[in-house]
Amino acid sequence: MKRLFYSSAIYTALGLLSGLFYREMSRANDFEGYSQLNVTHTHMLVLGTIMFLVFLLIEKNFSLTRNHKLFNWFFITYHVGLLLTVAMQMTNGIMTLKGIEASPAIAGMSGLGHIFLSVAFILFYVLLNKSYEFKKH
């Protein structure tokens, strides 16, 4: 349970710092348009902070961590997916602010991050189902 709590707290800090980074980078580059930096802090706060708080509440009721192996797969896959997605958003956003055209590889890496997140959600539902079935008996 502590890993879920600490993950939420860390994503809160990262989300707030990325919002500050976006504001200062936009100001320093006299940029007023849209870039991926606009939504980086939102992704971290919602998919990081809020989702890990939701996972924590579900853990309290269903003891997801009881199935250590599957939980670890979910936990690691989710972090990799979220961090990869956000890193590519930041890279794309910084390039936009600097007037550099982003490579299609950045979109591909971001897509890979989204795939990791999708797999993590599938693992989460499998884990939740197993925990629910265990609790029923």
Rank of each mutant, 00 (worst) to 15 (best):
L64S: 03
L112M: 08
V54G: 08
A107K: 07
E59F: 01
F62L: 13
M1Y: 13
F75C: 04
L123T: 00
H41E: 06
I122H: 07
I50A: 07
I100H: 08
A28D: 13
L123Q: 10
S26Q: 00
T12A: 06
A9G: 11
A102Q: 12
F21V: 04
K98N: 13
H137R: 15
G93N: 03
G111Y: 06
I94Y: 08
K136L: 15
N92D: 15
L16R: 07
P104N: 09
T65P: 14
F71L: 07
G48N: 02
V126Q: 01
S8I: 06
Y6C: 11
F55G: 00
T49H: 00
A120R: 12
I50W: 06
I94N: 11
S18W: 00
M25S: 05
A13I: 15
L64M: 05
L128G: 08
F124R: 04
L17N: 04
F55N: 02
E59D: 09
F71G: 02
S118P: 01
A107Q: 09
G48D: 04
N72V: 08
V119L: 10
A102T: 14
P104G: 06
L70E: 04
R66K: 12
Y6V: 11
M95K: 15
I106T: 09
K60M: 11
T49W: 12
N129S: 15
R3G: 09
Y6A: 07
G93F: 01
M1G: 14
Y6K: 06
V39D: 00
F62I: 12
